[in-house]
Simulated scan of single mutants.
Amino acid sequence: MTTTITIPKEYGYVVGVAATTFLLSAWHGHRVGPFRKAAAIPYPHAYASAEQLSAAEPSKKNAMYLFNCAQRAHYQFIEHYPQALAGLLVTGIKYPVASASLGAMWIVSRVFYATGYTNKDKEGGKGRYSGGLGMLYYFAEIGWLGMGLKMAADIVLA
Rank of each mutant, 00 (worst) to 15 (best):
T118Y: 02
K126N: 13
M105V: 13
A70P: 10
P96T: 05
G87C: 13
A56T: 01
L102A: 14
L23A: 14
D121P: 00
H30Y: 08
R110C: 13
G12H: 05
A48Q: 09
L145N: 01
A70H: 12
G29H: 13
M151L: 09
H74T: 01
A158R: 06
A114G: 06
D154N: 08
E141S: 03
A26C: 04
L102K: 02
P8E: 12
S109Q: 08
I93F: 08
A18L: 07
P44D: 10
M151P: 01
A114S: 09
A46V: 10
T118I: 07
E51H: 04
G92P: 04
Y47F: 15
E10N: 05
E123K: 10
D121K: 03
G29F: 13
A86P: 00
F139C: 15
C69E: 15
I41M: 11
P44R: 08
Q52N: 03
L85F: 09
A26F: 09
V14E: 12
F112D: 02
A46K: 02
G132H: 07
E10Y: 02
T3N: 06
G87Q: 09
V90Y: 11
Y137S: 15
K120S: 15
G148D: 10
E79Y: 03
P58R: 05
V17W: 04
L85P: 01
P8F: 09
L133I: 04
L23H: 01
H30L: 12
N119I: 05
R128V: 06
Y95H: 12
P82G: 05
H45A: 15
A153N: 07
A40T: 06
G12K: 08
A153T: 09
G148H: 02
I7S: 02
S54F: 04
T3A: 12
I93Y: 04
Y95L: 03
A104G: 15
G146M: 08
F112Q: 05
L66C: 06
M64R: 13
R110S: 12
L23E: 02
H45L: 15
